[in-house]
Design a protein around this nucleic acid. Structure first.
Lengths: 185, 185, 185, 185
DNA sequence: GATGAATGAGCCTTCATTCAT
DNA sequence: GATGAATGAAGGCTCATTCAT
């Protein structure tokens, strides 16, 4: 049954990632359980508190960020000017913005803090390894630190309300263009 | 007692503006009432629904935006390059970002819709009257429409979680710099 | 200004009679004030408690009952068999049923009790003066006391819910027919 | 725990039946939960809206009415004159009157409407199967339809206010006598 | 006297979390 | 391990009643 449990856990994380990205981080946990197709108690068995679930999303995010870095870094090293933009766009696709408001919530609570700080540092270090290249190459300014860059990307990709009286998709794409331009020296 | 009522109403709006900016638009109305120093029923007398209160904030926002335009437009006309940046910074100070998620919510609900659309158009027209100048002067790109600009500014100034593990104030200021650079042609 | 005050008071009673008959006795007092076209505080000045207002309705009811008795009693005396039915129908028109649930509420509270008991006795005595005639004439049974008759009429005329899935008006008329038949010896 | 849940649900229905009969259908749901000995959220789990709870009472009423018909119909068929009265008295014991005002409320709201209409029709059909016999036998008049009879019985058994200044129990019994007499041809 | 605003208490409803099967 | 039910706390909203003008 170990594999079943694992599958349930993954289903919950996937459901949470989806719903948090679309509905915001204050989505009811029962909705997450429903989306995952498991009982609410199963969710709680795997993630005793809401923070634990968010922490899993953060870990998930770290892994995806690191994977993207591994994938794109060679191209950035080979040609910083042309490799940078695809990397940023791929990072933006992760829609990490929704996690921003949550990140603070339990970085104040001591229990999970140390663990998350490690994940955070790992993701930031990976991003920094790319930033280092583009900064040197003059593709972005010296003021662009890893923290600023990642948090800024989060702000730019935070979900806009559904049904807003403007083109939300176009807005996000435009903002990424503006953001890329603004990062230049 | 008419003046008292007006004072109370203003206190509620002020409290709402403050709490919505910091805690988001889903702040408990009881918290708003407490912050304003009035009973919950007084808040409800003035604003029968949450939408009515948000609508008041939107109106308040429109007025502030228009006032800023009136104040800054002469300088922008006189010298677009040097007048543009202070205008954007002043606009950013209004912290209208928190209203973004709410705006959509009831622009779909018919009742208040028409009224709010008017306010929205007025504010956008005012901003457009400044954008027109700076676009012509080549201070910003041709792609910078009033809607994109204002929504983008909202995204950039949306409140970051209190207690986040990074310098939130510095981040906002840095983002505005980046935004200003990114808007250039 | 004495006449103005009197007019206001009467308007409140009239509004209360109307709304209590249609919406039930738990109608919001603010709705009564609105219907009467006066401020809520004016209502409270005239009727410090809800009980006081209901008591006024009871008094109003007593007066109408007594008036009806005065009007119909001669005909009943002249011809019990033909005079009885119009009297009952006229009484039913008063729609006193809605007051039934309220009557108990403050006949338990001591303050107004004695006053209302007097009104009650007066109305019952008036009705009894008619019942006496029809009982003697064999138009109704010996078991028909004034209390039973009046309370029963209240039950029969208590308002049925608006929008019910049956003909409410017809039901009331039919019930009065049935009631009249059932009262016979 | 399935059986526990069923027991709780039944306890809620029983509590609602009791309190609705005595206090009216606008009884606080928290009072129902207390009477049932469960938390308020348990009530809401079983009956997401007040209408759902009332609908359960209606179903319960239908079942009881049908059961009474099954029980009494043979006797009525065997001897209409002597079987009719016990049937009506048993029906009166159900105290369905309190549900009358509620029935209308959500027979207008579409969602539950069709379901309830079916229950209503079933109960009316059952009663009609008895009425048919007694009408034919001349025990009641031709004007006595199932709807009129049932609604009338509801009016006659609607709860009188507790603490009223008259013998409520005796009044109900007397009214049933009068009602029975009035139904005769 | 009349008015409308202010207030708090109470009910409705949702949701995070715990428990029993 | 998984499940769904139970729970209380919290927020939304209404209404009876009081108060200041």
């Amino acid at each position: 049954m170990r594999s079943d449990a694992r599958a349930n856990r993954d289903a919950v994380v996937a459901a949470a990632r989806k719903l948090v990205a679309t509905d915001g981080a204050d989505v009811p946990l029962s909705a997450v359980a429903d989306e995952a197709g498991v009982g609410i108690a199963t969710l709680y068995r795997n993630f005793p508190t809401r923070d634990d679930l968010i922490a899993a999303l953060v870990l998930d995010g770290r892994n995806r960020v690191c994977a993207l870095v591994e994938e794109h870094r060679p191209h950035v090293v080979a040609d910083p000017a042309s490799g940078w933009s695809p990397f940023v766009r791929a990072l933006a696709e992760l829609r990490l913005g929704a996690l921003l408001p949550e990140l603070a919530g339990f970085l104040r609570t001591a229990r999970r803090s140390s663990e998350l700080v490690v994940l955070r540092e790992e993701a930031l270090a990976a991003v920094e390894s790319v930033l280092d290249v583009v900064r040197r190459a003059g593709v972005v300014g010296e003021d662009v630190t890893a923290v600023r860059f990642v948090v800024g990307l989060g702000m730019v990709t935070r979900s806009l309300p559904a049904g807003a009286p403007f083109d939300a998709v176009g807005q996000h794409e435009w903002m990424i263009e503006v953001y890329l331009r603004g990062l230049r020296p």
